[in-house]
Design a protein around this nucleic acid. Structure first.
Length: 495
RNA sequence: GCGGGAGUAGUUCAGUUGGUAGAACACUAGCCUUCCAAGCUAGUCGUCGCGGGUUCAAGUCCCGUCUCCCGCUCCA
């Protein structure tokens, strides 16, 4: 199959009621998307798959649903008020953008640029570049020679005058704009009168809701270390550039665990969770060749993180992060202890020690994960010289679990039987009934939204009380008694 | 925010030097149809992204604006 384009996926999602652009009626609002009737099922199933594997199938994790609005001091303690801003500068010449704190302040000298004319003469171009040495100036010429005539010899000569101390574009030596701050947190107000009200933030991550509930959960659930808290919820970031469909949006959903453990055991737990989370994506169908783990470089690590690995997926846009697993040490709890004045230490009865627990944080994006499952499931196949589009989603994730069709829509007994089967199945699975097209088209419609099983009532059904169950991927059919259908489906959905 | 590209039906796209908005698929209804986008008939669908301007006349030209796509940057 040809390389999947993001547009193809976007168009399928819109056409089949999976994902729509946000506020489309009003020409859209950047960085928002709405999950349609099929999409909400898929996304909910992704969340269920996660919750099931981290909460229900284990004994050491509790669930939580904390408020989106939190006391403003939370974000002072977490470092977001101070650090969740990016001072950015733009090069006025080559238009590249840099983090202001990543650009070094140096002494720069002015260099005139000459190009070789007839014979040995050198003509001054009038262009001036700034660099800390002649060698650096020559190097810069290599990277930004586009504005100079090609095929001519070029040289630089230091101009008269004092060195200039400050920041210049690392790419071309051009002048930079003043740094501008982008605060990535959304602000709003608590209280009806804006002027009197306290400023609060829409949480930029769900993690802090977990940290502040750590003592309450430990007490009420009689927990001892090691144990974790899992939470799924919306977060908000005023992204400068939301991009790539639901990959980066301003409003997004996270699924995060904070796993609390004894200092010294953290490295082992960190490795454990990296492995655990990687396997989760595999378990629900992501192909190994599209999934990888990427350790963060030292320079890439956040100030509080001792180690971090990303689970990356090969999206149509290239390899990108689905989830980060970080060893955060005791940074967060220490901060909250300091800012709240409450004791957040843990008394370890076994070793008779008191300490602040270390934390391992597997933090994934629900929307990104949903996108990865969609991209990984997308197939274009040729069947009898016709193309079929199929979402080969894991049955647990499939939005619609079963569809029921009458083979002949003009035979009332068949239609009635099919409707009844659909109604009965609805009590156990999300099932749809459809009779508005020929059987082939009905199958293909369900293929496009990834419905794993289609049940068809035919003429024989009236005599033998049996129907066919058609498999989405193999397109093979199995004939089975009507009263065995639900049981058979339960078997197929077992994971 | 900067640079580049683009917005026409649900989708993919055509639309000439400015002169009555089109195709295919999809969708709906009926007929037909004994299992993989079958056929026939009929039908719905657009303020041509939005707002101004030029013109007798704008999908087409001009200005503004919004949105999307590709890069820079950032993260779940």
């Amino acid at each position: 199959m040809a390389e999947l384009k993001m547009e193809t996926l976007v168009s399928l999602c819109k056409r089949r009621g999976i994902i729509f652009p946000g506020s489309d009626l009003y020409s859209g609002l950047g960085g928002t998307f709405d999950y349609g009737p099929i999409g909400v099922e898929l996304k909910n199933n992704v969340k269920k798959a996660w919750w099931r594997s981290v909460v229900y199938e284990r004994n050491d994790i509790e669930g939580l649903d904390a408020a989106i609005l939190m006391h403003p001091r939370t974000w002072v303690a977490s470092g977001h008020v101070e650090g969740f801003t990016d001072p950015l500068v733009d090069c006025k010449v080559c238009k590249k953008r840099f983090r202001a704190d990543h650009v070094e302040e140096k002494d720069f000298f002015a260099f005139k640029i000459f190009i070789q004319g007839e014979g040995d003469t050198w003509d001054e171009t009038g262009q001036i570049i700034y660099a800390e040495s002649k060698k650096a100036a020559k190097a810069l010429l290599q990277t930004c020679s586009a504005s100079l005539p090609s095929g001519k010899n070029v040289r630089v000569e230091q101009a008269e005058g004092q060195p200039f101390h400050g920041k210049r574009c690392p790419e071309c030596g051009g002048e930079l704009t003043e740094p501008r701050n982008f605060n990535l947190m959304f602000k709003t107000f608590v209280g009806p009168v804006e002027e009197d009200a306290a400023t609060v933030y829409l949480r930029p991550e769900t993690a802090q809701g977990i940290f502040v509930n750590f003592p309450a959960i430990m007490d009420t659930m009689r927990r001892k270390l090691p144990f974790g808290i899992a939470q799924i919820g919306k977060s908000f970031r005023n992204e400068i550039t939301p991009r790539n469909f639901i990959f980066r949006t301003r409003e997004f959903e996270q699924m995060e665990i904070e796993f609390f453990c004894k200092p010294g055991t953290d490295v082992e737990w960190y490795e454990y969770w990296v492995n655990e989370r990687y396997n989760w994506y595999r378990r629900f169908g992501i192909r190994a060749e599209n999934l990888r783990l990427r350790p963060h470089e030292k320079t890439e690590l956040a100030h509080y993180a001792r180690a971090c690995k990303d689970v990356e997926y090969k999206f149509p846009i290239g390899w990108s992060e689905l989830e980060g697993i970080a060893n955060r040490g005791n940074f967060d709890l220490t901060q909250h202890q300091t800012f709240s004045g409450k004791d957040l230490t843990y008394f370890d009865e076994e070793s008779r020690e008191r300490y602040i627990p270390y934390v391992i944080e597997p933090s994934g994006g629900v929307d990104r994960t949903t996108l990865a499952f969609l991209a990984d499931a997308y197939r274009e196949e040729t069947v009898r010289d016709r193309q079929r589009v199929v979402l080969a989603l894991h049955p647990f994730l499939a939005p619609v679990k079963a569809a029921v069709f009458p083979l002949l829509a003009n035979r009332p007994e068949i239609v009635e039987t099919a409707r009844k089967i659909a109604m009965d199945l609805k009590k156990e699975f999300y099932t749809v009934y459809d009779d508005t097209a020929a059987i082939g088209k009905l199958y293909r419609r369900q293929d496009e939204i990834g419905t794993p099983f289609c049940i068809t009532v035919d003429v024989e059904t009236l005599a033998d009380q049996a129907v066919t169950i058609r498999d989405r991927d193999s397109m093979e059919q199995e004939r089975i008694a009507i009263d065995k259908v639900a049981v058979r489906l339960h078997e197929k959905f077992k994971i």
